[in-house]
Write a protein that binds this DNA or RNA. Structure first.
Length: 214
DNA sequence: TGAATGATTTACT
DNA sequence: GTAAATCATTCAA
């Protein structure tokens, strides 16, 4: 008998914290092609990340951490890389981010779209539509609903920490996909920061949200 | 305590 | 293409 149970699927192991503990633009670009994995109530959903945006507070006016704003909501952004930041917006939608960089740097990557890889039936049920629809996961609020990601997840560790149980929500390895860059979406209030090309999209992927780059 | 607003989505013209 | 839905968070008072 082996002392340790072998991993059922090597590709579904959490990325190490070293992936996240780097400059936010680097992490955002390298997120494209990685897998997003969530297991809850015995059901697992997996998607390939095809769109992500970098938010670099405190100088980035588009970031919730602009000006060093440290509140109950933004607190996870100031903590250790590899944790989740999930917020509620427009009275209806959750958005999922990963914390990057060094402790004290409120830098995050917003995961804006994924291509479903596994658990499409579960996603379709949560979204109330057929599993072959692009609209299953082609937006930040849509993928949170499809993956059952909510405010309960904000602040949780996406990495395997010593002595802690393995995370049920995490990013896993995947092939780096060619990316195109574009200005970020929905931040018209952010002045000079509006035009920064900090949105990374998988080139030509159908699940990239609107407006499509190019 | 109150008012403004938003890292969106959906339905509708 | 436009507009409505809907409420936690934030900040001013």
């Amino acid at each position: 008998m082996p002392k340790e149970k072998p991993s059922p699927n090597r590709r579904l192991r959490p990325l190490p914290r070293t992936f996240y503990s780097r400059p936010v633009l680097t992490v955002a670009r390298e997120c494209i092609g990685k897998s997003l994995v969530h297991s809850i109530e015995g059901r697992t959903t997996v998607g390939a990340i095809v769109e992500a945006e970098a938010y670099r507070g405190p100088e980035d006016r588009a970031a919730h951490s602009f000006g060093g704003r440290r509140t109950k909501r933004t607190e996870p952004m100031f903590g250790r890389a590899g944790h989740a930041y999930v917020f509620f917006v427009y009275g209806m939608h959750w958005n999922f981010n990963v914390i990057t960089g060094r402790v004290g740097d409120p830098h995050v990557v917003l995961i804006r779209a994924v291509e479903p890889l596994a658990g499409k039936g579960v996603m379709a049920s949560r979204r109330g539509m057929r599993e072959d629809r692009i609209e299953l996961t082609n937006g930040p609020g849509k993928l949170c609903q499809a993956f059952a990601i909510t405010g309960d997840h904000t602040g949780i560790d996406l990495c395997k920490a010593r002595g802690a149980p393995a995370p049920t929500l995490f990013l896993a390895d995947g092939p780096q996909l060619p990316t195109v860059r574009a200005p970020r979406v929905g931040i018209d209030y952010a002045g000079a920061w509006v035009s920064k090309p900090w949105r990374f999209c998988a080139r030509g992927n159908r699940f990239v949200s609107r407006p499509r780059p190019g």
